[in-house]
């Protein structure tokens, strides 16, 4: 199981365009991808409604995790999306 912990620096958090890009990227994976706020339950990272409902704002600390071939590359891409200004 691969995992990344990262602080969200995107100005609008995981709302609006970054949320859409994040979900679309996760959705390409053939395996499950989860996202959680620290201390929060993980939710399906391929679900725009679940990701929006997390209400991730700039400065929040999140955990993304996945298991499968290519999981590390995918998680790196997701980290990049939430780290963009």
């Amino acid at each position: 199981m691969a995992e990344r912990k990262v602080t969200v620096t995107s100005e609008v958090g995981l709302h609006a365009r970054p949320a859409a890009t994040f979900v679309q990227t996760a959705a390409k994976a053939p395996f499950d991808v989860m996202i959680a706020k620290v201390d929060g339950p993980p939710v399906n990272a391929k679900s725009i409604l679940a990701v929006l409902s997390l209400d991730v704002e700039q400065g929040d600390f999140i955990v993304v995790s996945a298991e499968g071939e290519g999981a590390d590359e995918l998680l790196d891409q997701l980290v990049e999306i939430v780290s963009a200004p």
Partner: peptide
């Protein structure tokens, strides 16, 4: 287009 595209993603939401 972005707004409508985001709405389309809601309709295709796997959890939903």
């Amino acid at each position: 287009e972005q707004v409508l595209h985001a709405q389309a993603m809601m309709a295709r939401d796997p959890e939903l």
